[in-house]
């Protein structure tokens, strides 16, 4: 026995490896947790992603709230119209833009390919991504809600409204995420990077996200509210104003989720 077993053990470990086979998978939950943590760490390390996920939504929230009449948000208290819209924008940035770009680069750099040969199943991989994504969204929504409240946001409808908002966010996440995966699984990494950002900006301008559909001219209004961005943002505005869940919003989001998922499953290329 050595006086300093720790030191001896580490020297031993560096010089010799016990390479005898002892294969086996970690438990499924442990793999999902590990994957979700890994993706979250990588996301937080990436400055652009943090900018997109948190900084831009918060700047918009504070900027537009303080900008007075520069941006017309239609009827209602400004901050009450603005906060749910910025929440929808945050969901869109995380579930669509961030996810699409990250996944496209995972495909490009052979990460998905390598993981295909690991004990982590595709279901496990997707679950890990969803857990990481929902964690990100929880942080985003808490931050936006907090800043909104500090700026005088007054959500109505109590617990029922909060639950309905959660349901909308969940279906919205599925629809955005499936569309993001559709893009990431078929386009090159560069095309996805450009495309996902372009779609983000286009939807921000014409997708009834921050500026409510009521401020849009007539034909554009119908289009905007049937897009996932408009459906989620309008739905959140209605619910958090205490008007209850408007079913057409949920139906529109479910339809996008169904179309996106079906197409993504059919077309996704892992390499």
């Amino acid at each position: 026995m050595s006086d300093r077993p720790g030191v001896d053990a580490s020297i031993q470990a560096i010089t010799r490896l016990d390479l005898r086979p002892a294969p086996g998978s970690a438990p499924a939950w442990a793999m999902v947790r590990s994957h979700a943590l890994m993706e979250t760490r990588l996301l937080l390390r990436n400055g652009e992603q943090v900018l997109l996920a948190l900084v831009i939504p918060l700047l918009l929230l504070v900027g537009v709230a303080k900008a007075g009449g520069v941006v017309d948000l239609g009827p209602g208290r400004r901050i009450d119209v603005l906060t749910p819209g910025v929440m929808a924008l945050a969901v869109m940035s995380a579930a669509f833009t961030s996810l699409a770009i990250a996944t496209a680069y995972e495909r490009r750099y052979g990460v998905l390919k390598r993981l295909g040969a690991s004990p982590l199943s595709r279901t496990g991989l997707l679950t890990g991504k969803v857990v990481s994504l929902l964690g990100m969204e929880a942080v985003q929504l808490a931050a936006i809600g907090g800043v909104g409240l500090a700026l005088g946001w007054n959500p109505e409808g109590g617990l029922t409204a909060a639950l309905a908002a959660c349901v909308l966010v969940l279906i919205g996440t599925v629809s955005f995420a499936s569309l993001g995966m559709l893009m990431a699984g078929t386009w090159s990494a560069e095309a996805t990077l450009a495309g996902a950002n372009l779609v983000y900006v286009l939807l921000l301008v014409v997708g009834a996200v921050v500026i409510p559909a009521a401020s849009y001219p007539d034909p554009l209004r119908a289009v905007a509210t049937s897009l996932p961005s408009g459906a989620l943002a309008e739905g959140l505005r209605e619910v958090l104003r205490g008007e209850g869940l408007v079913w057409t919003r949920a139906v529109a989001l479910c339809a996008w989720a169904a179309i996106g998922t079906a197409l993504a499953i059919r077309t996704f290329k892992w390499e």
Binding site: A22, P23, G24, S25, A26, A30, M31, S34, H35, M38, R41, L42, R45, N46, Y105, E106, R108, Y109, G110, V111, K113, R114, S118, P119, L120
Partner: peptide, 25 residues
Amino acid sequence: LQAGGAWSGSRAEEMLRYVASLHAN
């Protein structure tokens, strides 16, 4: 693999720890 297989932003030890976490022993 002949190329790739790791996240471009990951660190060597972190990547190794992640792959290790998918295995039992």
